[in-house]
């Protein structure tokens, strides 16, 4: 795991350490089992095509879980995710390389908390931001 990041280490424009994912159909099935979401558009190609989809697609909630991992990994054990939200604007498919990314948009304190707002997103291998969103995290302070 990476070294603990501190509030003083980041500035507006600092990148969140990216997280790359290479989902396979098997991972979608594994996720279906772990999450309880057995909607067939995520593992049954014929069903997905019948639903006007390009084929089986990655679960939105799985992408959300990866964004959660992106943020948890970045803030470290002394940091805390306060809030995050994402929109599933574009579909993602297994076989593609998907990368979770983020960048700091605001740095401030509130009470005794040292906070950072981020733009976050997941992009596909073409660089299209299929899943944009925002997050607020608390980081430990050296002060």
């Amino acid at each position: 795991m990476a070294d603990q990041i501190y509030w003083e280490d980041v500035d507006v424009g600092t990148d969140v350490t990216p997280l790359e994912k290479n989902p396979t159909p098997q991972q979608l099935v594994r996720w279906a089992g772990a999450s309880g979401d057995f909607y067939q558009i995520h593992y049954d190609k014929d069903f997905a095509l019948g639903n006007q989809l390009p084929g089986i697609i990655v679960h939105g909630a799985l992408k959300s879980a990866w964004i959660g991992q992106l943020l948890s990994d970045w803030v470290g054990e002394k940091g805390m995710i306060k809030t995050y939200g994402i929109s599933y604007r574009g579909m993602d498919v297994p076989g593609d390389t998907l990368t979770c990314k983020g960048t700091v948009t605001k740095k401030y304190t509130e009470g005794d908390e040292h906070l950072v707002d981020c733009e976050i997103w997941l992009e596909n291998s073409k660089g299209e931001k299929t899943t944009p969103g925002t997050a607020t995290v608390a980081l430990p302070s050296k002060g």
Binding site: H59, G60, A61, S64, G68, M80, I81, K82, T83, Y84, G85, I86, S87, Y88, G133
Partner: peptide, 9 residues
């Protein structure tokens, strides 16, 4: 389809 998720912790 899932359109989006937001969480407050």
């Amino acid at each position: 389809l899932n359109g989006g998720n937001e969480y407050d912790f």
